[in-house]
Design a protein around this nucleic acid. Structure first.
Lengths: 107, 107
DNA sequence: TCATTACATAGCCAATTGGGTATGAGACAT
DNA sequence: ATGTCTCATACCCAATTGGCTATGTAATGA
């Protein structure tokens, strides 16, 4: 029901956007042209996707001269984690063996 | 890049589908009519969404007479957890790098 | 000053998506 | 045997989405 939750899930649903976010996680702050290289789409499309990721709180931007550096906001992933944890929680009430999932989440 | 990962993210992007999955997590195996109550959409639409969730491995179904019971498949959440963990991991790595860098600069 | 570079926005279009109604196929009850 | 109930599929439609090109604006460099 949460507005933010919906924005996060929706933003990460597109593979191009997920790819952009992944690259920002891997390599830190990057300019649009920097991201353009392996994005597989045109520059305006990259800008549009970044705008959507920003609206979902998944990235931040910083202007330096004519460059705009984008970076991942990993705190936003908490939305995903919280939801998954909640779903797993409902399960814990229902089943006894959650080991595999819980072990993964422990890491 | 993973086919399954893409299906999972895409399936959970829609609020109606997420709602269905949530209810299955909360209340265990349920029939289509059972889910129909609070879904806010017509029965065929519920069936269609369940089909998409099933294709993503997020739910399973079991036939009993004229009823079809759907249930959440917990293993599928591992896809989400793994991805999130990986993204968080890159963060950790970069943090370590930064730490390392700062230590070098201290000398 | 003028060209170039970095980026965002606007406008366009085809494909996908999420919803609907109509209908068919089994299972069950009367 | 017939009607009802559960569910899935087929088909249709409007809205959204994801891509493109063209263009504008600001910063930089020659």
């Amino acid at each position: 029901m949460s507005e933010l939750q919906d924005a996060v899930f929706r933003a990460l649903a597109d593979p191009t956007r997920r790819g952009l976010f992944e690259r920002l996680c891997r390599q830190g702050d990057t300019t649009v042209v920097g991201l353009l290289a392996d994005a597989g789409v045109s520059q305006p499309v990259v800008s549009k996707h970044l705008k959507i990721l920003k609206a979902a709180g998944l990235v931040h931007d910083r202007h330096e001269g004519r460059y705009t550096y984008y970076g991942a906001r990993r705190e936003a992933l908490a939305t995903l984690v919280d939801w998954t944890t909640e779903m797993a929680g409902f399960w814990q009430d229902r089943f006894d063996d959650l080991d595999d999932l819980l072990k993964r989440m422990d890491q």
